[in-house]
């Protein structure tokens, strides 16, 4: 067992954990923040995406004890049913989900993607590596490709993110 302390959605948590506990299981099983989903537990689906120190990561492929002092934002930290984050509201409006299981990961990823574009991080489909990055539809779809939606809501998710990006641009 090892002690670790980190911030989740603005609250500091001190935990004593089996070193084997992933950040994902720490959130779901210890803090009961079950909005973050376990789809594959192997970094192959993106359902577990959370934002750590401003960057989106797969919480299934990182140990909780490696996050001493980190600031973690989960889906619960973005908004709640009675006060939705704009990205959450856009997903509802555009029906950017079906079964809902990949949805928190999609939304966390989408929020982080807009930040990545703002910070000028290029992607596989960025035509000119030395020019400023623009959020085209192709950019958005490439950047979101680490979040699998088996229900196939991709087209609607793209519409939802596009709307939020347009509003914030």
């Amino acid at each position: 067992m090892t002690k670790v302390s980190f911030d989740v959605n603005g609250d500091t948590h001190q935990l004593e954990l089996d070193t084997r506990t992933t950040l994902l299981d720490a959130l779901r099983e210890h803090l009961h923040l079950t909005g973050t989903k376990k789809g594959c537990d192997h970094g192959q689906c993106g359902a577990c995406t959370v934002i750590v120190d401003g960057r989106r990561i797969n919480s299934c492929l990182t140990l909780a004890v490696m996050h001493e002092g980190d600031e973690i934002t989960t889906i619960e930290g973005l908004g709640a049913p009675d006060h939705l984050h704009p990205m959450q509201a856009a997903f509802v409006k555009h029906d950017g989900y079906q079964c809902g299981y990949c949805t928190p990961g999609q939304i966390c990823s989408a929020v982080a993607v807009l930040d990545e574009v703002r910070s000028g991080i290029p992607s596989h489909v960025t035509a000119d590596l030395t020019a400023p990055v623009r959020l085209t539809n192709a950019e958005l779809r490439e950047r979101m490709s680490g979040n699998i939606c088996r229900c196939g809501a991709y087209s609607n998710i793209a519409d939802a993110i596009g709307e939020v990006a347009g509003r914030s641009a």
Partner: peptide, 23 residues
């Protein structure tokens, strides 16, 4: 890297996903 070693930038961006590349 983007300017002088574009092949490296391109290779990295072709790999994995945004989440995995962040870690």
């Amino acid at each position: 890297v983007r300017r002088d070693y574009a092949v490296l930038s391109r290779a990295l961006l072709a790999g994995a996903s945004g989440q995995l590349r962040n870690k």
